[in-house]
Design a protein around this nucleic acid. Structure first.
Lengths: 213, 213
DNA sequence: CATTTTTTTCAACGTTCGTTGAATTTATGA
DNA sequence: TCATAAATTCAACGAACGTTGAAAAAAATG
């Protein structure tokens, strides 16, 4: 017979993802998480070694899926443009599209995940070590591709450009709802296609503007 | 005679600002804050009504200074460009420059403040209500100025553009140190002049690219 | 100086926190 | 089937949390 639909580990990861996204690491207790997961408190320590282990496992679970999909798309745009390096906009889309596709078509847990990632990315506590451990290998390949697509840009400009790029992206994923209030209902910050239509053009133009500076 | 150099309120605000920036609201205890401030634990409730009151006072203290300086600079670029509306780049610089100037020339507490703001801006818990209460009135004036500088852009494009703009800005202020690692020492994420040279051009080009989409 | 108000100190409240270890149940495999 | 391992349950630990109220001290006011 197949194993239960969701293992205890998965139940814990799903509940933790959702609750960490709302109130952050310190604002969420293991008791809240295990209650939401319908699982005994002590199982967190058994399966993940503790609260921090659970948190890092949440980040890494979908992080690995995201990295794989990003690498796949980067290889594809490289193949399509060969022997030339791919255009800047194609590279940034290979970076963004996996996220936007996951948000539109896949498991709704991705919404919580990216909202959590936005907070982690902007946090001094986790932003360097945990984001680095999870994403740096992949990100470096994208930065290299961006450099090839912007031959006139200094490397520092591309690094700073990546910083702006990921800042614009993560705030858009943070699900704060602030854009909705600010625009008095004119914009819907959870409208993925509205984001998709604008993020790539904004960032690609920004990067080109930076390299022409 | 003048009052003591720093009042109890100020000591608490300074200590809270520094510690909230490092570990967030839930990751910082009042006991840690009062120990850092050299002040009795119960004074937080006396002066601020509780932990949340202290937190919001931290955000609002420098928020008010920042708003005033931003409004002043916006008026100045409007005056200089009159009777035409000011250019996009002038508007975004009126938005960025107060921050960059505070970071370069003023009280080092601004570093903590902006790092804290980065986390708050990306947090579902605070991003809407507290950021909105503190900054929306000012931000709306900048968005209006951006619309005037981009007559071909749809209002939605400008709202989304502001979202990207502030995302790029806040991540740059978050002091995670990730950029330094990613660039293997080539970039220094706390180099304000390096940020100043690039953020304006990136964002202005991005906004123009968005409006031409 | 006397009185009132403001500010600070001190001790303690009840709650919740992450973690642990022993006991129990369930699954695995010879 | 029976021993072994894996997974789960349960109760409890000590520590830290935000908040409170009464008493003491300091400052302000007349």
């Amino acid at each position: 017979m197949p194993r239960p639909r969701r293992t205890t580990k998965e139940k814990l990861l799903d509940a933790a993802e959702k609750l960490f996204a709302r109130k952050g690491y310190h604002g969420t207790s293991l008791r809240t998480i295990t209650r939401e997961a319908g699982v005994d408190l002590a199982l967190v320590n058994y399966h993940f070694g503790g609260k921090q282990g659970l948190f890092e496992s949440v980040i890494e679970r979908r992080g690995a899926m995201l990295n794989a999909e990003r690498i796949r798309r980067l290889a594809e745009v490289r193949r399509q443009a060969a022997p030339e390096p791919p255009a800047t906009e194609a590279v940034v889309n290979a970076f963004f599209d996996p996220i936007l596709d996951f948000l539109e078509h896949a498991d709704p847990g991705w919404h919580s995940y990216f909202s959590l990632l936005a907070e982690v990315n902007n946090s001094p506590e986790w932003g360097k070590r945990l984001m680095g451990k999870t994403f740096n290998t992949t990100v470096k390949q994208f930065i290299e591709a961006l450099m090839q697509s912007l031959p006139d840009a200094a490397p520092q400009d591309v690094y700073w450009g990546y910083n702006f790029l990921t800042g614009a992206l993560t705030l858009s994923l943070a699900e704060t709802g602030r854009l909705d209030v600010l625009s008095e209902g004119l914009c819907n910050s959870s409208d993925v296609s509205a984001l998709r239509a604008r993020l790539g053009p904004f960032v690609a133009a920004g990067l080109r503007g930076l390299s022409r500076r």
